[in-house]
Every structure is written in structure tokens, then in C-alpha cells.
Write a protein that binds this DNA or RNA. Structure first.
Lengths: 325, 325
DNA sequence: CTCCCTTGCTTGAACGTTTAACCAACTAAA
DNA sequence: TTTAGTTGGTTAAACGTTCAAGCAAGGGAG
């Protein structure tokens, strides 16, 4: 292992000078910097992170805790986060909260023990991570007061609802997965508050809700808006089973634009998160906090984007059609 | 920050004794160990990973590199790996190789620079990670000579093929995603080598292959075996478009048992990896290598499991049925 | 009583950085 | 010519551990 000492003795200067030259901190002549750089490159010098961490107290590592790593959105978040972190020369240590609030808290502490400089957390539904000895950035949803950055889930809900209203649906069904999730509640709030006054909406939840929604189609509902592509796919399967065609008889929407959304048939109209932007802001925020600065735009939200595909259309089927009032 | 020094001076012993007591290494009396432990707990002492790393040269951190973090399998691997690592008091630092072999190599080096003790890598299709200064465990497939542990992809292919043969199909289509992938080649090899002599099989690849496969159904093929659930879903969509019903007219199989496989309609017959077992073995292997031991069962493979659902059935449709010869 | 072994602890150096404090030499201003 | 400021370095301590080596005290064997 080649250390700063080796370079120093090679060139005949002190280790302090080498350190200064390499980090660009103290006062070192241009020429000396060049010589030191050259020798460092030659020797393939890599600074010891451990030594630096010991001295400075910073490891350059961020901890990432997600509610459940099997969440289909996780890969994209992890990837973009990892790329964004990389640009800032930060590493990402992962931990899984295994679905429980207790485990979430333990995971956070494990990361802190490992010396992370800051924490990124997508909280377990319905929980708020307890205070930590290092800065923390929360990725959740606007209605969470601890939220640092997130997609505008409310706005996303509004987008689909507007789309559904615009193309002429008047009786709709809204289908959520879990009432405990603030994200899903916000999405649904966005939907309901955007529907026109002359529209009629029923909200259902969970697995039972899927059945209720499909049944409701018989009573004249022409659109089903769900809070997740996964739920939409489940509904789609039920509809096939009941011989209800999409979008002819009923329009269907999802949320999050997962991989299969564009592949399934009909391709699913959904709402996409700008994951890159969220990740990049999360990193900005946590970096600022680590440096003791007040993070710009903390708590702000990133717009979602409506992706219209084939699963939604004008309600045309004669039997089901309800003339605009 | 409470250090070993604080405990030492509190109790009135040397730091060495505290260190020995806490790590259980040197010679310390039972009683003293107890007193030190007690005081440490009281103060909420956490050893400085950085200091330890600096001194010992080990960080207790593993690097994980995946070809593309958006790979739908990633979450499960990451999760189980993270849990398994945790049990061994190891951390996991992630890096994304962004789809290219160069980036993969860079990612590996970044991790090494961060001082990881070992590397876990799921290699980019068709690449072999170049030699690294730390131990490395490769998760790929049996036919890769550098493979440390993986699912038995060949066996998985054999399982589906056997299933398809058993229920009476005689003319089948095999559909792969990318010829470059050893994993997919092994899966397909498992399929083709397991088919009976009196069976007829055509192999197609990629997006074009999907169309070819669907067209081939017209010529009498009664089953389509794919190397991925994602491909299967794509095929399913094409089949709906062509009004070919599954499984009545044609049986369909996937690979990997992704989330949507059980949700889509009809629920997909597929082959599942024992991700937990693979992760746990990977950690065993890399730990052994780090400790300089010869890892037991390196290179061995973990059996896959056939999950039969509704997308496969006896070839019954009159028009398409071909009597067993 | 001496010799040696074991037990239980201490000493001190080392890991590779960073950083505050210091200093010599030179330059520019007064 | 003194004084003050700047430039380009050096010295030495410190971060929190670990670990080899050392040492005092006690015990058992001879």
C-alpha cells in the first residue's frame, strides 16, 4: 500500500505538503503540486479512506434505508441515488428495514454505527423515523411534515383524474392499496379533489377493494383509477376473468410506470415519478445538511408526469355509456 | 464521542485492557471484563469503525456490483444479501455498473478504493470482471468458469421443458432475450436438452423473436417457453392482440417468478430462484475467502423450483391439437 | 528457596491522514 | 533600513484502535 509518506520521502518534502498538494488545501507552489501529483499517479496512490475518516470524522458514506427492498420502485431509486451520490464522491451503504418500524429504526442505527455521514430514508408506511445523530433526508410525500423531497403524489392523482374527466368519464372508481400509506392517501386526495362536481366517485381499498371495484363496473362506472400499477394489473386480471374489456368497457389507470406497465396489454396509462430528479435533490439536501448549510428547497416536491397509453379511452360502449349531464 | 480511552480512565485501567475485554482477545479477568462491559454499555460506547479499519486493514464492508440496478431481480438479491451480511456484521456498499463493461470495472475499482474487504458481483452479460486486489465472489451461472454460486439455470430450463413435455406438448417455441447472456443460454440449453426426441423446437431471440414466436403459433406450436417473465408478459400481450388465448391455444412459461407473474392473467407458470440460499452462500464464500480459507462449495449451484400456474395446460384446442406421435 | 510458568495487566508504537502552529525567506511598503 | 505581509513550506500532534512485547505478582514444582 502506497501512502502519503512514500510520496513525501520520494520527493523529499514533508507529508503535510503532500497532503496539501493532493487535497488543494494549504499553500503549495504550482510546480510542487505538479511534481507530487505526477509521483502519486506513478505510484498509483489511493488515499486511505479509513485514515481520513478517522482524522476528519467524515466517511463520505451515506446510508440508505428503504421500507422493503422488494418494493418495485426501489431499484430505480437505488440506481439513480447511487449515480447521484457517485458524482459527489459519496458511497451508499444499504440496509433493509424488513417491513417493520422497529427494524427500520435498527437499520438506521446500524448505519450510524458504521459511521455514515448522513441518512436517506424512504420511511415505512405510516412511520416517522426517530431523531438520529446524523443528518437525515426523508423521501416520502408532501403531507408528511418530515418530508425532505418527494414526487408530487397529490399532483399525480390530480393529473390522472383530470385526464379521466377530460375524456368524458363521469362515474369512476378509485382503488387504493393500503390506507396507512400517506403516499397513497395523497394520491387519492389529488384524484378526488380534482374530479368535477358532476362526477361520482367511490373509493375502495386493498384486495377486497379489487373485487368491489370490478363489481361496481356493473353499476355503470366507466373508469378505475388505482394508486399503483401492481393494483392495476390485478384489476386487469379480474376484468379479464369477468370478460370486461379494457378500455372499451372500462378505462384503467395505474401509478409509478413500472417496467411491466408498457408491456402489459393494453399498455397501462399511468403516472411516472421523476426519480432522477428526486434522487438528485435528495443527495443535494443531505449534502447541504452534512456541510451544515441550510438545504435549498427542502420539502419541495417534484412534479409527476402523466403517461397516457391504451388502457384509457373515451367511454364509448353503448350499454355502459352515460351521456354527459 | 465516547472512546475506549474514556472507559479506560473511568475504570482506571489501560486502553489495551479495555480493547481486549471488549473484543475478547487478550488476557483479562472475568470480573474486569464485566466491569468494562458495564461501563461501556452505560456510556453507550460504539467502536470507531474508521479507527479499527485503519489499524486492522479491514472495514467489514462488502461491495455489491450489479449489471443494472433496475434489474427486477435486484431488490430481492440486495435484500437477502443485506440480511445475510448483517448476520455476519458486514455492511453492503452498492454500485451500479450502468449497463457497460467499462462502468462495471470502474464500479469495482471505486468500491476497492473505498476499502471494501470483498466484492460480490453479478456480472454484466458476457463479461468477466478483471482481477481485483480483494477477494471476489461471482454470481452468474454454472457455465461461467469464474462462477462462485448461482441458481441452476440449466436445471431450471430442464424443469420447465420436462413440465411442458409431460403435459403433452410436442411442438414448442423457445424464446430468449439476449444471446450474449450466459444465464439465458444455460436456461435454453437446459430446455432443449431435456425435450424428448419426438419433439420439435424452434429457438428465437429478442424483440423480433417475440413476433416470430407468435407467428409460429399459427404453424402448430402449442407452447412458448421464455427465459424471463418479462418476455413472457410481452408475448402474452402480443397473443391477446392476435386473439390467441392462453393456455387454451398455447401454453406460456416465464422465468424468475417476478412480482407480477402471479398477478397477471393467466397467472404465469415460471421457475423461481432460491435467492435466499444463493445470497447466503455468496456471503459464506466471500467471508471464507476474506479470512483466507478455501470456501466450501464454491462453484456449486442452487436448484431452481418450478412454479406451475394457469398459463400452462394440456394442449387441448381441437384446431391446434397434434396427437402424440 | 529458587526457577519457571501462568495470569492479568501496562507500555508504546503503529495504522495514514489532516491541521494548527510555526518558521524561513523573500517582497513591498514606509 | 526597518517593518509588515506573503509565500512555501515544516513540525508535531491528533484521530481511536489494535497488538506485540514487557512486567509484576502469585503459584507450583523441584
Amino acid at each position: 500500500m502506497v501512502s502519503i509518506k512514500k510520496i513525501a520521502s520520494d520527493i523529499g518534502v514533508s507529508t503535510a505538503t503532500v497532503s496539501n498538494a493532493l487535497t488543494g488545501k494549504g499553500r503549495v507552489s504550482e510546480e510542487m503540486v505538479a511534481r507530487i501529483q505526477a509521483r502519486a499517479d506513478e505510484l498509483g496512490y489511493r488515499p486511505s479512506i479509513a485514515a481520513r475518516a478517522l482524522k476528519t470524522g467524515h466517511t463520505g458514506i451515506l446510508g440508505l434505508v428503504m421500507p422493503d427492498l422488494t418494493n418495485p420502485l426501489f431499484p430505480r431509486i437505488a440506481q439513480t441515488l447511487s449515480i447521484a451520490a457517485d458524482r459527489r464522491k459519496l458511497g451508499i451503504l444499504i440496509a433493509d428495514s424488513r417491513g417493520s418500524a422497529d427494524e427500520q429504526s435498527e437499520a438506521l442505527h446500524r448505519l450510524v454505527d458504521r459511521g455514515v455521514d448522513g441518512l436517506l430514508v424512504v420511511p415505512q408506511k405510516g412511520t416517522t423515523p426517530d431523531p438520529m445523530p446524523v443528518p437525515i433526508a426523508v423521501i416520502n410525500t408532501a403531507s408528511d411534515p418530515t418530508n425532505s423531497v418527494s414526487a408530487d403524489h397529490w399532483g399525480g392523482g390530480a393529473l390522472v383524474a383530470q385526464h379521466i374527466a377530460d375524456i368524458g368519464h363521469r362515474k369512476v372508481i378509485i382503488l387504493g392499496g393500503d390506507k396507512v400509506s400517506e403516499v397513497q392517501r395523497d394520491r387519492i386526495a389529488g384524484m378526488t379533489q380534482t374530479l368535477r362536481n358532476d362526477m361520482q366517485a367511490s373509493v375502495f381499498w386493498g384486495n377486497r377493494g379489487v373485487m368491489q371495484a370490478v363489481a361496481e363496473v356493473q353499476t355503470g362506472a366507466t373508469a378505475i383509477m388505482t394508486t399503483s400499477d401492481l393494483i392495476a394489473l390485478r384489476v386487469r386480471s379480474e376484468l379479464i376473468r369477468s370478460q370486461v374489456s379494457v378500455p372499451d368497457l372500462v378505462s384503467l389507470t395505474g401509478f409509478d410506470d413500472m417496467t411491466f406497465a408498457s408491456i402489459m396489454h393494453p399498455a397501462l396509462t399511468t403516472v411516472a415519478q421523476n426519480v432522477e430528479e428526486i434522487a438528485s435533490r435528495a443527495i443535494d439536501i443531505i449534502s447541504a445538511k452534512i456541510q451544515g448549510a441550510a438545504p435549498a428547497q427542502e420539502g419541495e416536491t417534484v412534479p409527476m408526469r402523466l403517461v397516457v397509453r391504451q388502457s384509457t379511452s373515451i367511454p364509448t360502449h353503448p350499454a355502459k355509456r352515460r351521456p354527459p349531464q
